[in-house]
Simulated assay, not measured.
Amino acid sequence: MIQVANTIISEDIIDNEFVCNLTSCKGACCIEGDAGAPVEETELRIMKRIYPEVEPYLTDEGRAAIEAQGVYVKGEDGEW
């Protein structure tokens, strides 16, 4: 464990980069969470650019939600 100020952090962060494992989770955090996976501001432009490549794999419901809300939304907590 590593202590940074008043926060204890697992040493796993040194070896393990955060990456969604869709094969394992099947999108659980995006479905069960309040607003989906968090997105960095730098990723917003990328999401817009790659949407045409992702769109064929979405459900009709998913495409309709993106058409109504956009490729990304800002949550009540201010996070994308």
Rank of each mutant, 00 (worst) to 15 (best):
71 V>F: 02
41 E>K: 15
40 E>K: 15
66 I>T: 08
11 E>A: 08
30 C>P: 02
72 Y>V: 12
60 D>A: 15
26 K>C: 01
54 V>G: 04
15 D>M: 12
47 M>R: 02
30 C>Q: 09
61 E>H: 12
66 I>E: 00
75 G>S: 11
70 G>N: 04
24 S>M: 07
69 Q>L: 10
7 T>A: 04
53 E>W: 08
5 A>L: 07
25 C>V: 00
50 I>W: 07
49 R>T: 05
26 K>Y: 03
53 E>M: 13
21 N>C: 10
5 A>F: 09
44 L>E: 01
79 E>Y: 11
1 M>D: 02
19 V>A: 14
4 V>L: 15
30 C>N: 10
11 E>S: 15
14 I>Q: 05
21 N>H: 10
60 D>S: 07
66 I>S: 04
53 E>F: 11
38 P>N: 01
44 L>D: 00
7 T>C: 02
74 K>C: 03
23 T>C: 05
29 C>Y: 04
20 C>A: 09
9 I>Y: 13
37 A>R: 06
67 E>P: 14
68 A>G: 05
6 N>F: 02
9 I>Q: 07
66 I>V: 15
71 V>E: 03
32 E>L: 13
28 A>Q: 11
54 V>L: 14
41 E>D: 11
69 Q>P: 06
37 A>N: 13
65 A>M: 04
12 D>Q: 15
20 C>R: 12
64 A>W: 05
50 I>E: 05
65 A>E: 08
53 E>H: 13
48 K>I: 00
66 I>N: 03
35 A>K: 07
51 Y>M: 15
53 E>L: 09
49 R>S: 09
69 Q>M: 12
61 E>D: 05
78 G>M: 00
50 I>A: 01
28 A>W: 06
73 V>P: 01
21 N>R: 13
22 L>H: 06
38 P>K: 05
67 E>H: 13
18 F>N: 10
15 D>Y: 11
76 E>W: 07
1 M>Y: 10
74 K>P: 02
21 N>W: 09
35 A>G: 13
55 E>P: 08
74 K>N: 01
68 A>I: 11
19 V>Q: 14
27 G>W: 00
45 R>K: 12
11 E>L: 12
56 P>Q: 02
48 K>F: 00
74 K>R: 15
80 W>S: 03
74 K>V: 11
15 D>Q: 11
7 T>L: 14
74 K>I: 10
7 T>S: 12
5 A>S: 03
37 A>W: 03
3 Q>D: 02
54 V>Q: 12
14 I>P: 00
49 R>D: 07
